[in-house]
Design a binder for these strands. Structure first.
Lengths: 180, 180, 180, 180
DNA sequence: GATGAATGAGCTTTCATTCAT
DNA sequence: AATGAATGAAAGCTCATTCAT
């Protein structure tokens, strides 16, 4: 038994519980976002779902946008973990990345749905600027990697937009239908 | 002198100009939706952008959801017009449909963006049930057409979800990046 | 009986009443501001005191700051009305102005108290910028009038800050104690 | 090495530096009050400005009102120190008091501004009752001193309110403009 | 003395919608 | 067909304050 659990018994005090408060807020938020959509989820919903108080939520996150950002970072690192170390061979590397996306997406349908929604909302919602920047950075990094491959002559000279659509388009499209 | 102009004199009302009020509300709404997103657009925004009064908007549409539905119907018929009459040859028909989507999408980036957003919001937003049904019907119709083709033995026996992803995934993915 | 009163009877509809809604909101707000202070008064307080709904208040005023501004304008025009037409003789003009201030202040203790509070809050409260500007304009106008008098040689050459303190300081100080 | 520094090592606490914690909280609070106004300053603002923790602030003061009260006491004793020992001659005594106010006010514009604001807020804000009482006591003491002078026949028989306005009104009015 | 997570009442403001005119 | 005043529920967010450590 951990020290924290111990003291929670001794003092009869409502502890942050073994599960971290911040984590539990994020988990509850994701559940709400999937169920009611990002805009359809109020802070009160997250409060109810997480058991944390309004003040507690704002103690850890500056607002709903910051929660979305934190969730997005989790998703990104989840996909990255799934991808593993990038191969040197371009074909292998790209296939691995797409496969990782599909596997991760099928294993984390909630994150996937959230990602899909927030990606579009971030285009117009001011409270999601941080999310938008994060997405843009990822996109630009991918484009840069592809550019390098092209200069090395290992992939065909086609615009990144088209290459991206050909490589990931079917995967995205499939995942979007699969979880439901 | 038209009837409308006539009544504007008789009643001292500010009339809607030769362009139909309903149309101008729809056009203004689309502009707002693209700029601020569907949820970020209030009826007041549409009022300002269209020049119509609040009451006028509610005279033509029962609410924001109904405006979205009307816009969606415009989009769908726009794509259908672009597709022309379906060919008898399955390969020709499918190619024509995808090509029509790309052409229509490139020509109507606003509609496309709106479609992309509303498609996701409709999954959770109760005020968009009508939109959701419309989308589902379209999806089911496509699946049915594909099923017929399979029974006729003119296309391979793969799940519709995968076929759909292979056929339209790249197009969607490309269009999503193109307008920006 | 006015048309408005008439129709309110015929339709059994809650009319804005003979007293204008906007006016009644202002009057209620002033009452609250005097009783609880500007910052101590919430929109809910004004709602209760005026009988108007929250939405109605925001329909007429963009916020609490705008209500304060409107009240300030009323105060200023009240004092101006009391002052009457400015005399050509500087001594007469100044005395008339000070006298008008005292008379108006004794007759409108609520407005006076509000003025006294808002004058200070406006120095720091961002929602009172409009109030601050209004006050600054009045101050600069008075300084300009005084400057003209000095150039005409009809008043002594002393800094306006000191002249102002000598002329109005006692009046302000007295009024501040009088109403309570 | 001081005791304080000692304990900071023993306990691993971030200590308050040679300057007393209580003092630094008061100084930071005054800075905030001047910059953002009393009501516009939150405990969090004071926390940030002083470097003390929330708990520390509440260790020394029971709340924002208590901080205001402590600052007011500092102001009053500052003015009193400036006034020196009261003369026996009434005219000299009064002049000394007014002069001391002006000198102190010009030397301590922050305290002056705070005083000016809190004096008005204390009329309505329940959390400033202590401040209000302090001010009232000072006022009553001055009135009593003036009453004694009148009974001794050394000053004219005019109401204290008027005498006060004539004596201090110009000084207050001048100081209010001077610091800016 | 010092810390900061936790609380929840309360605030301002927005908004879709109604309806007499 | 057109208007805009009126409504009130609900949203995001702030804040003084408490308390186990």
């Amino acid at each position: 038994m951990s020290l924290e659990q111990c003291s929670s018994i001794v003092y009869g005090y409502q502890m942050s519980s073994p599960i971290d408060r911040r984590e539990s807020i994020l988990a509850a938020a994701l559940r709400c976002f999937v169920e009611k959509g990002y805009r359809g989820t109020s802070i009160a919903d997250i409060r109810t779902a997480s058991g944390a108080s309004t003040g507690s939520i704002y103690h850890f996150f500056s607002g709903k946008g910051a929660i979305a950002e934190a969730l997005l970072r989790l998703s990104v690192s989840g996909w990255a973990d799934q991808s593993g170390t990038a191969s040197d061979d371009p074909e292998t590397a790209i296939k691995a990345s797409v496969t990782a996306l599909v596997i991760w997406g099928l294993a984390n349908p909630g994150h996937l749905r959230f990602l899909d929604e927030v990606r579009i909302l971030a285009l117009t919602d001011p409270e999601l600027v941080a999310v938008r920047n994060l997405i843009d950075q990822g996109h630009m990094a991918a484009a840069a990697r592809f550019g390098t491959m092209q200069q090395q002559g290992v992939v065909r000279k086609i615009p990144f937009a088209i290459a991206h659509a050909l490589m990931l388009g079917p995967a995205y499209s499939y995942l979007r239908q699969a979880p439901s």
